[in-house]
């Protein structure tokens, strides 16, 4: 069981992510968008969305630090207690900001008629997994530091070691199996979220337009060479007036 969960599943998820992104990039450029609902509602979005996203950046950064940097490296600079205190404070603040942001966004999505109508089943599933990942992440941070018998648990000696072992394709299943239940649950939900990315609107995260900083303002492009133009077939984006935003298929 441990081998399946911590030795096989992560690779399956990674494969899904990579293959899914490649598939989506090749076949669904037109569907690759943030699908903003700002046109319908702006006030709550303007607070909730930045709160969530900036919170998420800090959270992701914290994950990378905690998972990638071996404990004995930081031990040379600061004590475990200081590290833990910093990580716990920053992590909790960011996590709570993130959660508050998404709570606001979900409230907005549910109560603003037009936004709710534009919410697909895919979105709903994504929200459930995303919120679960966040909530269990905070739970793991706050309570995952001790085993049920009261002995101390440091995820950087279990989860992080396992995570780094995955990177070099030598999965240290045992290290992960040593971790607490809270972390295990959080990781499983996290894996589900990662697997979901290519197939949900989360995909927009993979086209963060950083190249904007470097490109010229005015872009000249030659007329497209031949592209077949179906004159009869249904073309995406051309659904008749009255088709609702969440109607399937044609995004």
């Amino acid at each position: 069981m441990d081998i399946l969960l911590w030795g096989v599943l992560p690779y399956l998820v990674a494969l899904t992510l990579i293959a899914g992104l490649a598939w989506r990039y090749r076949y669904d450029q037109f569907g690759w968008t943030t699908r903003s609902s700002q046109l319908y509602e702006s006030k709550m979005l303007k607070i909730g969305s930045p709160l969530f996203h900036y919170g998420l950046f800090v959270v992701l950064g914290g994950h990378l630090l905690g998972l990638l940097i071996p404990k004995d490296w930081t031990d040379r600079v600061i004590t475990q207690e200081t590290y833990h205190a910093i990580a716990l404070t920053a992590g909790t603040i960011a996590g709570v900001a993130c959660l508050a942001g998404i709570a606001m966004l979900i409230y907005r999505r549910r109560t603003t008629g037009a936004v709710f109508l534009a919410t697909t089943k895919n979105d709903k599933l994504m929200y459930v997994v995303l919120v679960a990942a966040l909530v269990f992440g905070i739970i793991a941070t706050l309570t995952g530091g001790t085993y049920p018998d009261g002995t101390e648990h440091n995820y950087r000696e279990t989860v992080s070691i396992w995570f780094r072992s995955l990177m070099v394709f030598q999965p240290n299943v045992h290290a992960m199996a040593e971790s607490t239940l809270q972390f295990k649950v959080h990781i499983l939900i996290g894996l589900a979220l990662i697997a979901l990315i290519p197939f949900s609107r989360l995909v927009h995260a993979f086209t963060v337009p950083l190249h904007y900083v470097f490109r010229p303002y005015v872009i000249y492009r030659s007329r497209d060479s031949h592209t077949p133009t179906p004159s009869q077939a249904r073309v995406r984006g051309w659904d008749p007036v009255g088709t609702t935003d969440k109607d399937k298929g044609q995004r």
């Binding site: 337009p209 303002y217 872009i219 007329r223």
Partner: peptide, 14 residues
């Protein structure tokens, strides 16, 4: 065009 972060808006050179 200058505002587009993705660089999706373009001017046809022809």
């Amino acid at each position: 065009m200058a505002s587009c972060p993705s660089g999706a808006i373009y001017k046809r050179s022809e």
